[in-house]
């Protein structure tokens, strides 16, 4: 497999794949940051350990995907140290910090489900076997992240005053911002890197969410300003205050 040194050398399919993997890896980076910030809210030692393990898992997955991006000329130097808030391509869903414990649980459930849904379409990729194996390993590890959030949703629901369903409904709108217009060309799918189209993955995500939450009818489709390279509407990047929290610090002290 040849190593690309410049983005100009990439084919359109490789450029689209690179963008999508960047989005998935950045989603995992920011989600790891969420776990890091919420860690001290763990409800027991076992809960604390679980959040810690999920944080570590997400950082590991993000770095493995960043490393895979080396195939497209991306360096760890670039992904970890030279990017600013406007360069991070995580989903809009993770822009707004958790408003409560139940909002945190609803959001991580949506985020874990969205990322796993997207990665599931790479498991059979014949065009990139390394990516297929990586996706499979990440999915196996992420299964327990989903069990954690589903377990919490069930527990919270046992209290009639719980807001977890409302929180999920609110977050679902932002979660769906990760998938664009069904009519736009889906190069990653048509070239065989992914085995499922983006619009089918959106449906698969909604079906998976529907097993836990009521999905309301008449969900609004993506806005026209949706950009595939960042998988979101509007301006690129994440809020500065979020970047300040999740960005790697003190480059001078980083071990080689």
């Amino acid at each position: 497999m040849s190593v690309i040194n410049s983005i100009e050398d990439l084919s359109e399919a490789d450029r689209c794949l690179r963008d999508e993997l960047y989005c998935i890896a950045d989603a995992k980076l920011v989600l790891a940051g969420w776990y890091m910030m919420v860690l001290q809210n763990g409800r027991s030692i076992a809960d604390f350990t679980s959040i810690c393990a999920m944080m570590q898992g997400q950082y590991g997955h993000a770095r493995a995907l960043y490393q895979h991006l080396g195939r497209f000329g991306v360096t760890l130097e670039e992904v970890e140290w030279t990017r600013g808030a406007k360069d991070i391509r995580s989903p809009k869903l993770l822009d707004r910090p958790p408003q409560s414990w139940s909002d945190f649980i609803a959001t991580i459930f949506m985020a874990e489900q969205a990322i796993s849904t997207q990665l599931s379409a790479y498991r059979t990729s014949l065009a990139d076997r390394t990516l297929a194996r990586l996706a499979d390993k990440i999915l196996k590890e992420s299964r327990f992240h989903l069990s954690y959030s589903v377990g919490w949703i069930k527990a919270l629901r046992k209290d009639s005053a719980s807001t977890v369903d409302e929180d999920a409904r609110r977050r679902l709108v932002d979660a769906l911002d990760w998938w664009g217009d069904a009519d736009r060309p889906d190069v990653v799918f048509s070239t065989g890197y992914r085995d499922t189209s983006d619009s089918d993955l959106r449906d698969r995500f909604l079906k998976a969410i529907g097993a836990t939450f009521d999905v309301p009818d008449g969900i609004v489709g993506p806005a026209k300003s949706w950009q595939p390279s960042i998988r979101r509407n509007g301006r690129p990047g994440i809020p500065e205050n979020l970047f300040e929290k999740i960005g790697f610090k003190n480059r001078e002290l980083a071990m080689p």
Binding site: S44, A46, D47, T49, S50, C52, A53, M54, F144, H145, S147, Y148, V150, G151, W152, K154, A155, K158
Partner: peptide, 19 residues
């Protein structure tokens, strides 16, 4: 052993604690 309010949360906690 782990303490949890349901099997899903127990599954996740067991997996992460006894790793």
């Amino acid at each position: 052993s782990v303490e949890a309010p349901n099997a899903e949360l127990a599954e996740a906690r067991a997996w992460f604690v006894y790793d």
